[in-house]
Design a protein around this nucleic acid. Structure first.
Length: 442
RNA sequence: UCCUGAGUAGCUCAAUGGCAGAGCAAUCGGCUGUUAACCGAUGGGUUGUAGGUUCGAGUCCUACCUCAGGAGCCA
């Protein structure tokens, strides 16, 4: 029994592989079976004159995605397709586990609705194989990098008693007759954990009930949120660029074949190393205004219109990101468009010590973070200003009473990061089972 | 939620208001090097739903449903 990914180590030897029939080509007295086992794909060849009649007839009758166990001899052959490819198995015996019914997904073009309806089967295709393996490495690198740099994983609750930010975007659940919500961030709890452990992170699914329907949104997505005591905004950016670069480099190191399947141009990714450019919100607005003035395209012009004080839309982010060859930090956003807990800039309270990281190639915001307010009086004032009930946040306000320190943190969206690194036009393929505005099945 | 577009065979798509079609898949036959093989044959339809206009509607009109692309909001 071998894994197909290890096929090259068995040249000339007899092996057994267990898997599924990916595709079959019938050439009469010659059959090519493409077999996958989850680790890779290998071509298995059946010659009529070399096999007992019943084995050859079985090979001829196999349907796409039938489960089977094949025994044969490995040989190098440049013509052999597969993953890794270059080796094929000369079949000696086939054991059928189940003859599959007509498989709905063929190796050809399909519409996206059909593919998403058949997501449970679509996962078997080589493209999804490549994407989800890269996703696993991204998640693995996130955890390893943080663990290796002194961050402690401290889980935050998914069921929350009160709003993190804004109740209209929360999924409400019935908690034994009481109202509760699915978490859209672990950040407030992270701040409590930061006070206990110094550098912490939480990592899990988060939920947003926004009725947004774009290539960059999911109702359920995965986010890692580090939170660090005694960190300034500048410390935060220095850490983020190391962290994001490590993720990209890990994928480049481990997943060349997968990136090739996705036809990803890796030259963009090779550039992703510190330092990342840093521009202020003020400068970003000026740059967008300049781009606005320079474009003649009326449609593009309308998308690029902006006034100081408003948050960036998709077109603005893309325009800014296109000016750089690596991710770009935009810091000091207007206080009014950001969350209540963000620290105002000294002497200029209309902007806050926040920073977003915009990915290249139009992939938009992949992290958002800030320094948090640590002065209890200022936090009380901000809570009163936005009109939320301080009683709901009593425990959070406690954190400012007992050894409050300057601190900062950010969140990184896993699916947006996967989409960017894989070069995917839509986020829906970056997670095994996407939860979208119009999609709750399968 | 708003704007735009699309729903025809299992899938991808054709069809001037006038006989419902093709390729792939399936089934049968042929082929010893295929890379989404190729060649021949066979079966396969409530044209998203409900109304309307018309001698006649896949095609035109109205409403609804579903999906896609974009916007807003965000990671």
């Amino acid at each position: 029994m071998i894994q197909i990914s290890d096929i090259a180590a068995y040249d000339g030897q007899d092996v057994t592989v267990r898997g599924w029939l990916y595709n079959r080509t019938d050439k009469g007295r010659l059959q090519f079976l493409l077999v996958r086992d989850g680790t890779g794909v290998v071509q298995c060849v059946a010659f009529k004159k070399e096999l007992p009649e019943n084995v050859f007839e079985l090979a001829q009758s196999l349907t796409q995605e039938s489960s089977l166990i094949i025994t044969g001899t490995v040989r190098a052959d440049e013509r052999a397709p597969g993953q890794p490819g270059g080796f094929e198995i000369g079949i000696k015996d086939i054991q059928l586990v189940q003859l599959a019914g007509e498989f709905p997904i063929q190796p050809k073009e399909h519409g996206i609705e059909f593919l998403m309806d058949n997501r449970h089967l679509w996962l078997r295709s080589s493209r999804q194989w490549a994407i989800l393996r890269i996703r696993a490495t991204i998640i693995n690198t996130i955890r390893n990098w943080l663990d290796d740099h002194g961050y402690l994983l401290v889980d935050t609750p998914i069921i929350s008693p009160a709003a993190g930010e804004n109740t209209t975007t929360l999924f409400e659940i019935d908690y034994f007759g009481e109202s509760a919500f699915l978490a859209q961030t672990g950040q407030l709890y992270n701040e409590a954990n930061m006070g206990a452990f110094g550098k912490v992170y939480c990592f899990g699914p988060t939920f947003r009930a926004e009725k947004s329907k774009t290539r960059r949104h999911l109702m359920e997505f995965w986010m890692v949120e580090p939170e660090m005591a005694y960190f300034s905004l500048e410390d935060l950016m220095a850490m983020e660029e190391q962290f994001v670069s490590a993720i990209v480099q890990a994928v480049l190191q481990k997943h060349r074949p997968e990136l090739a399947i996705l036809e990803r141009d890796t030259t963009h990714l090779e550039n992703i190393k510190p330092p990342f450019p840093r521009i202020s919100y003020d400068e970003a607005v000026e740059r967008v205004k300049k781009a606005y003035a320079e474009t003649d395209d009326a449609e593009k012009k309308a998308d690029l219109a902006i006034e100081w004080g408003t948050d960036f839309g998709a077109a603005h982010e893309t325009s800014i990101a296109e000016m750089f060859d690596r991710p770009v930090f935009v810091y000091h956003y207007p206080t009014a468009v950001k969350a209540f807990y963000m620290q105002p800039v000294d002497g200029r309270p209309e902007v806050c010590r926040s920073v977003d990281l915009l990915a290249p190639e139009g992939y938009g915001e992949i992290t958002g973070g800030s320094e948090r307010i640590f002065d209890p009086a200022l936090l009380d004032k901000r809570i009163a200003e936005i009109g939320i009930n301080p009683a709901s946040y009593a425990w959070y306000l406690d954190l400012r009473k007992y050894g409050s320190v300057p601190h900062a943190g950010f969140g990184l969206g896993v699916e947006r990061t996967v989409a960017w690194i894989c070069g995917l036009p839509h986020i829906r393929e970056t997670i095994p089972y996407a939860r979208m505005l119009n999609r709750l099945y399968p």
